[in-house]
Design a protein around this nucleic acid. Structure first.
Length: 484
DNA sequence: TGAAATGTTGGGGCG
DNA sequence: ACGCCCCAACATTTC
C-alpha cells in the first residue's frame, strides 16, 4: 500500500511567521504536502479595523514571499471560515489540520466547534501554543484562581519557564495543485479605499523581517535607556513591536529568548531597562490571561457595579472632535493625530486621551475602544480591552476611580519641551513652552505672537478640565457605594 | 502607570 | 541677632 500522501492544512491566523511557529513546524515535519491557508472572514465578532486591514495586506504579502522561499505558497481565501475550510478539506483530500491557538472568546468558540466536528470525522486536528510565553491557564494562584492584579501575575509567571522557541521552518513540503476559489492578495481588497494610510509606510514595515529588525535595533541600543525613554512620547524610546506582535510576525518567546541570549553573552546587563521591557511584554500576557478567564470583559465591565454607570449619551460632534484631534487640549490632540496619521499612538498618551474621553467627557470606554480598534495597526482585543477598562476603572487591576489624568500636567512632566505637541499640532507650535500644553492660559500678546486665534485657528478646550474632573469624581464615587 | 489640597520645613529678606 | 513673614520645595492626605 502506498504511503498516505494526503496533505495537511496549516491554517494561518494571527501567527504570520515561519520562525517559532510550532503548528507550522509540526505540519512541515510530517512528510506530507502542506496547504498554507489564510482565510479573510469579515464576519468575526470584532472584524478587523481599517488600520489592521492595511497591515494585514502588507503582512500577507511579506508572508507569501517568505513561504515561497520555503518552497510552498500561501493560499488566500475570503468568506465564511467554516465553509471554506470544509471546501479546502474536500478539494484536497486533507485528513489533517494544524493551527496555533487563538484566545478571543469568539475565536475559541469557532475553533472548538471545528475541532470537535473534524475529530468526529476521524480528521486529525493539531493545535499548538504559538502566540504567548505561557498559556493563559498556566499561571494561576495556588487555588487555581486567575490573577487579577498585574504585579502578582508577573511575579508568578517568572516562576514558570517560558514555552520553548520552535526552530525556524525552512522548507514546507508542497503540492502545486491550484485550489478552486483561491484568491490573489489584491482581490481581497484589504487596503483602505481612501488615501488615508499614505504615511503608514514611512513608519512601518509589516512582516517578519520588519519585526526582527525592530527587535534587533531595540536590543542593540535603545534598550539601554528604555526605562525612562519609553515614557517620553517625543522620544523613540518604545520597542515599536506592538503591531508585529498583534499579527504574530514575532512571538513573545522569541523576544524573551533574544534578551536571554544577550544577557548570557553579557552584551546586555539585567537592569531596570531590561526588566521594564520584559514587563511590558508581560502586560500583554496578562491581558490574554484576563481575556481568557473573563471573556465577557471584551464589552462588559469586569466590575459589575459599572453596569449601571451613567455614561453620557454619545454626541457625535463631541466624539468626532476627540477622534480627529480637535479637543483644544494639545497633548490629547497630538495623540489622536499621531494615531490617525501613523496608525499608532504612544502608550502614555493612550492613557491620557482615554482618561479625557471617559472621565472628563463622560463617555463609555467602548466609544474609545472601538475607535482604537479601527485606527490602530496594533489593535489587539486583549490589550485594547485591558487598557480601556484600566482607564475606566472597571477592569482587573484598574486605576482607582479617582485617578483622573490632567493632560496639562502630564504634558509638563512627559513632554516638557513640547516637542511632541509641536510635531503633531503645528498650528500652536509658536507658543512658548510655558503655554504649549494650555494655550488658553497664554496672554493675548503671546497668542498673537504665535499667530493663534483661539476658537478659530485652534479650538477652545472641549471641557473645563477642573470642573469636569470634579463632576467625574462625583459620578464615579457614587457607584463605589453600590452593592458589590 | 494621579492630581489637588493640605501640612511641614527651611532659607532668605527685612525691619 | 532675632523674630516674623513669605514662599518654594517637599511630604502627606484625600478624592
Amino acid at each position: 500500500m502506498a504511503a498516505d500522501r494526503s496533505p495537511i492544512i496549516f491554517w494561518y491566523r494571527r501567527d504570520l511567521r515561519l520562525r517559532d511557529n510550532p503548528a507550522l513546524h509540526w505540519a512541515s515535519g510530517q512528510k506530507k504536502p502542506v496547504i498554507c491557508l489564510f482565510i479573510f472572514d469579515e464576519h468575526a465578532d470584532w472584524p478587523l479595523g481599517e488600520a489592521s486591514l492595511w497591515w494585514l495586506h502588507h503582512s500577507l504579502g511579506s508572508l507569501a514571499r517568505d513561504i515561497k522561499l520555503a518552497g510552498n505558497q500561501l493560499r488566500l481565501f475570503a468568506g465564511d471560515t467554516e465553509t471554506i475550510i470544509d471546501q479546502v478539506m474536500s478539494d484536497t483530500g486533507a485528513r489533517s489540520i494544524a493551527w496555533n491557538r487563538r484566545y478571543e472568546p469568539h475565536a475559541i468558540e469557532i475553533d472548538k466547534r471545528i475541532k470537535a466536528r473534524y475529530q468526529q470525522q476521524g480528521i486529525e486536528v493539531y493545535s499548538a501554543a504559538g502566540n504567548l510565553s505561557h498559556e493563559p491557564w498556566q499561571v494561576t494562584k495556588e487555588n487555581k484562581d486567575p490573577y487579577r492584579v498585574f504585579t502578582a501575575y508577573w511575579r508568578a509567571s517568572l516562576k514558570h519557564d517560558n514555552l520553548p522557541v520552535t526552530p525556524i521552518v525552512k522548507t514546507i513540503p508542497n503540492t502545486r495543485k491550484k485550489l478552486p476559489k483561491e484568491q490573489s492578495l489584491d482581490s481581497l481588497e484589504l487596503l483602505p479605499t481612501l488615501p488615508w494610510a499614505g504615511e503608514f509606510p514611512a513608519h512601518w514595515t509589516p512582516g517578519e523581517a520588519g519585526a526582527a529588525n525592530n527587535l534587533k535595533t531595540l536590543l542593540k541600543s535603545r534598550i539601554t535607556a528604555y526605562d525612562q525613554a519609553r515614557d517620553i512620547p517625543a522620544s523613540p524610546g518604545t520597542s515599536q513591536l506592538s503591531p508585529h506582535l498583534a499579527f504574530g510576525e514575532i512571538s513573545p518567546r522569541q523576544i524573551n529568548a533574544s534578551v536571554a541570549t544577550k544577557l548570557k553573552n553579557k552584551t546586555l546587563i539585567r537592569d531596570d531597562n531590561v526588566n521594564t521591557f520584559l514587563k511590558e511584554i508581560g502586560w500583554r500576557e496578562f491581558a490574554y490571561h484576563l481575556m481568557y478567564h473573563y471573556p465577557h470583559t471584551v464589552d462588559q465591565p469586569l466590575d459589575a457595579r459599572f453596569k449601571k454607570f451613567p455614561w453620557k449619551k454619545p454626541k457625535a460632534k463631541e466624539i468626532e472632535r476627540w477622534q480627529q484631534g480637535n479637543t483644544g487640549i494639545p497633548l490629547v490632540d497630538a495623540g489622536m493625530r499621531q494615531l490617525w496619521q501613523t496608525g499608532w499612538m504612544h502608550n502614555r498618551v493612550r492613557m491620557i486621551v482615554g482618561s479625557l474621553l471617559i472621565k472628563n467627557m463622560g463617555y463609555h470606554w467602548l466609544e474609545g475602544a472601538r475607535w482604537f480598534w479601527d485606527t490602530l495597526v496594533d489593535a489587539d482585543l486583549a490589550s485594547n480591552t485591558m487598557g480601556w477598562q484600566w482607564v475606566a476603572g472597571s477592569g482587573a487591576d484598574a486605576a482607582p476611580y479617582f485617578r483622573v489624568f490632567n493632560p496639562v500636567r502630564q504634558g509638563e512632566r512627559f513632554d516638557p519641551q513640547g516637542d511632541y505637541v509641536r510635531q503633531w499640532v503645528p498650528e500652536i507650535a509658536g507658543l512658548p513652552n510655558k503655554h504649549i500644553h494650555s494655550p488658553w492660559t497664554a496672554s493675548a500678546a503671546e497668542l498673537q505672537q504665535a499667530s493663534i486665534i483661539l476658537g478659530e485657528t485652534y479650538p477652545n478646550p472641549i471641557v473645563d478640565l477642573k470642573l469636569s474632573r470634579v463632576e467625574a469624581l462625583d459620578r464615579f464615587a457614587k457607584i463605589k457605594t453600590h452593592i458589590k
